[in-house]
């Protein structure tokens, strides 16, 4: 069976080579394409000419030695080596790719030592080095790439000083240093919200049977939040009394639960039990507030 597979594979490749030859007469290309296929790369013939080759998805095992085979496809204009095993040593092969305009080296083990190999790539317009160990030293070499227009350096050792120096040499170069992740503080948003709520002013509870009555309808005002808290032992229903004095249902709030509610100031909120019996009201003011529904 194994032998049959091999024969069939050979037939397939012959078929594929014939097919490619009908499009591209260059004899060297089919062999190089076959190697790229073997290395789980993808090669796309670009409508504008040349090849786009990528190993970033299924070809991540690509290593320095494999590069020799890859660069036999001399007409590569775009090469994506993201997440592969390439190191600085592997970049020595790239000098054969004189048509190369885009090069992805992000998240590889490439460092300063490898960048010197790129100075022959005089057509290079795009270089992605994010997530590598390159430093300002590498930028010295990149100053020689006069056509370079986009350079990605997020999560590298490059400093702003190095960037400024390179920008002076190549003012047309757009350099992306990305954001500094150390400036982002991961907050425990739930505890923050709770703390904030506890500091808020409280709205007065107007019980249904009480002497103080709410307005018979809501009025438009400014925009606030109300944090309802149901301290009863049973669920309640929350209604907004709209501008016409009608009840508009919003939500149920379970016993012991809270609800974050957008509101206007001067709004009337009605709380009932699940049988629609009116329990009491809150009338909002200008402030974002707590609204504590008391124990029965």
């Amino acid at each position: 069976m194994v032998g049959t597979f091999n024969v069939m594979e050979k037939l397939y490749y012959i078929f594929a080579i014939v097919l490619i030859n009908s499009v591209h007469p260059l004899q060297a290309e089919p062999e190089a394409l076959r190697d790229i296929e073997r290395l789980n790369g993808i090669a796309l013939k670009l409508p504008e000419g040349g090849w786009e080759v990528g190993f970033q998805l299924r070809g991540q095992k690509l290593n320095d030695e494999d590069m020799e085979a890859v660069v036999r496809l001399g007409s590569i204009v775009s090469l994506n080596l993201r997440d592969t095993q390439i190191t600085s040593a592997g970049l020595a092969h790239l000098k054969k790719l004189s048509m190369l305009r885009r090069l992805h080296l992000e998240r590889t083990k490439v460092d300063d030592a490898g960048i010197g190999h790129l100075t022959n790539l005089q057509k290079l317009e795009y270089l992605n080095l994010y997530g590598t160990k390159v430093s300002d030293e590498a930028l010295e070499h990149l100053g020689q790439l006069h056509r370079l227009r986009k350079l990605y350096l997020w999560q590298t050792l490059v400093t702003q000083k190095g960037v400024n120096k390179l920008k002076n040499i190549n003012p047309k170069l757009d350099i992306s240093l990305g954001i500094d992740l150390t400036t982002i503080v991961v907050t425990n948003q739930k505890s923050e919200a709770k703390k904030k709520t506890e500091d808020l002013p409280q709205l007065e509870w107007l019980p249904e049977e009480g002497a103080k009555r709410p307005p018979d309808r809501s009025y438009t005002g400014s925009f606030i939040m109300v944090y309802f808290e149901n301290n009863r032992s049973k669920p309640v229903k929350l209604y907004w009394i709209n501008y016409n004095g009608e009840q508009t249902y919003y939500a149920n709030i379970d016993a012991g639960q809270r609800r974050e509610q957008t509101s206007y100031s001067r709004a009337v909120w009605l709380v009932t039990d699940l049988q629609e019996k009116r329990l009491g009201y809150f009338v909002t003011d200008q402030n974002t507030s707590r609204a504590k529904i008391p124990l029965e």
């Binding site: 597979f5 069939m8 397939y12 078929f15 490619i20 394409l33 993808i42 090669a43 013939k45 409508p47």
Partner: peptide, 22 residues
């Protein structure tokens, strides 16, 4: 590999070059 039923590199490359791509 056997049946050539999907579009591996070679065939895909050809499809890209002759299809309605711009």
């Amino acid at each position: 590999g056997l049946a050539g039923l999907t579009l591996p590199t070679f065939l895909k490359a050809r499809a890209e070059s002759v299809g309605s791509r711009i």
